[in-house]
């Protein structure tokens, strides 16, 4: 059993990592810095999942977000942006309205949730939930599970269709070649 102050310290470490990463994503002037700060956010949120006894979610978060989405974002970044110039790479627009919205929304939401949920106390560490999630996915939630696998197939085909270069029609006598963009 981890003592209470250490638990609190761990929570504030994970939350601080996530929020510092989020701030860096939102305010960085170089877009590559934004992308790498996203790594800190994902890792911090994974730590918070582990804090919530959601061990399966923590691992899935690391594998899919850090291993998949972030690598994909970096690839897209390298392919599309002129990343060597900070001013070109991550331009911003409407900073003042954005800041107003940021302050207003965060103040309102934090006030509301502290007022509503501030009284709940800490729970003892729960059991691992991986087995329960597996059982539920193949019994109660089997229909969404199958539907989402079809969705993944559709996404796979759609991404290849949208991003892939079109094959040119074979010219008479010529070899079919890939169209250069």
């Amino acid at each position: 059993m981890i003592p209470e102050p250490v638990r609190a310290l761990l929570f504030y470490l994970c939350a601080g990592l996530a929020l510092a990463g989020g701030c860096w994503v939102a305010f960085a002037r170089n877009i590559v810095h934004s992308a790498f700060a996203l790594l800190a956010t994902f890792a911090g949120v994974a730590g918070l999942y582990a804090f919530l006894s959601a061990d399966f979610l923590a691992v899935v978060q690391l594998m899919i977000y850090v291993g998949g989405v972030l690598v994909l974002i970096l690839f897209a970044l390298m392919l599309t942006s002129r990343i060597e110039e900070a001013r070109v790479s991550n331009p911003t627009i409407g900073l003042v309205p954005g800041a107003v919205v940021l302050i207003a929304v965060s103040a309102l939401l934090v006030y509301a949730c502290v007022k509503e949920f501030g009284g709940t106390t800490d729970l003892p560490p729960g059991e691992p939930t991986t087995a329960g999630i597996g059982d539920a996915l193949l019994s109660r939630y089997v229909l969404p599970f199958e539907v989402i696998s079809v969705l993944l197939l559709a996404v796979l085909l759609g991404a290849v269709t949208i991003a892939g270069g079109r094959l040119r029609k074979p010219a008479p006598g010529g070899k079919p070649g890939k169209e250069r963009p």
Binding site: G22, V25, T41, V105
Partner: peptide, 28 residues
């Protein structure tokens, strides 16, 4: 550490994401 802490962190993350969505011009 209670539920309020987690919801507050999540609210702050949401606001930062919204700020990013409003002010950025790069699609990525």
């Amino acid at each position: 550490i209670g539920l309020g802490h987690f919801v507050a962190v999540s609210a702050l993350l949401f606001s930062l994401g919204l700020f990013c969505l409003i002010t950025r011009r790069n699609a990525v």
